[in-house]
Design a protein around this nucleic acid. Sequence first.
DNA 1: AATTCGGGGAA
DNA 2: TTCCCAGAATT
Length: 391
Amino acid sequence: MDINEYFDWSPEKIQDFRDCLLAWYDQNGRDLPWRRTSDPYAIWVSEVMLQQTQVDTVIDYYQRFMQALPTVQALAQAPQEQLMSLWQGLGYYSRVRNMQQAAKTVMSEYQGQMPKTLKELLTLKGIGPYTGAAIASIAFNQVEPAIDGNLMRVTARLFEIDQDIQKTATKRLFKEILDQLIDPNRPGDFNQALMDMGALVMTPSNPYPNPHPLADFDRSFQHKTSQLYPVKLKKTKQKQELKLALYLVNEKGQMLVRQHQTGELLQGLWHFPMLNLNDIATLNQSTAIKGLALQQFFSQDQVAEWSNEAGILDKAKLLLESVQGPIKHVFSHRIWQVYLLPVVYSKQSEKLLEALWLMDDSFRFVNETTYAQLATSTLQKKLDRIRMKED
DNA sequence: AATTCGGGGAA
DNA sequence: TTCCCAGAATT
């Protein structure tokens, strides 16, 4: 895949393109909070939040985060609880953990000053090719194209690039082209101008305005083939999982919650303890522990009856009126159907908990006030809504 | 090269 | 429903 198959602009046309794009940007660029600062740390925070996350979603999170942790040092020293609270609901929680790790690196290796080159930025956790180039260009005027989904869509349409944008070779092609196009005098503005062009004009589905600001440079526009680009192959579909969340309240009115640990989804966030129900169909011949679990929730006869049938959840729901849900929670690659089971605390349920889980520090009994201060996922907030309705 | 990480907005 | 979003780390 050679760049010359797609790219044949003269130096004059390249310069015309830069001038046209930046003139459009100067008039039509979005006014965003992180564009009102030149603080590299603030730009860094914004870029990490914006990974796979829409601008409108990020704005409030960004304002709160910068108010709470205004400097690299503050971020480096922040307790994990605060980080998770600031990030709760935003998704991709490893982003904030990686960013704090990188902040510590900046403090120890760079005297608290963000490094200025792409090469150095790439050594920091959570900073990849896009984010590194974005920080380098916007905060430090380095001539590095920040190639995100917008730039790929715009570039694919300008040059009618009929290659799958997910592939490494295609990303390399985009970089070769954009290395030619980027304006060495205003690299940060160039990148952001293309982002705005992708977000405001050359969107995934909207028709272009008339006149289209890049009409003279957009082959797909001239050929009326814009909808064909970019080329992207289908994603694999998500796997379904059944979960049962325990809404267990003790005699003091405290409920049991658990913080998800390393290796689990939604790490660091608090939830009701959850059982994986995909396994329950095989519980009767499985361990005594699982058998004990079932006996608690369902009668032994029911277990025997259900164990070799499909659709046991539907049966369980019919027989156990107290089971609520399911609520559906969609991840990038998984779909959870989560049922909620209210459980009255007793000696038996205590035994059950110890049989099901190692009751370590990840578990806590909390009252509603304390609970409200814990960082929880959007999934858990959905469970809150249905338990409140029933109570 | 493919998979794993959340959640929401919009068609 | 499906797609996409200012992607990176891990396998």
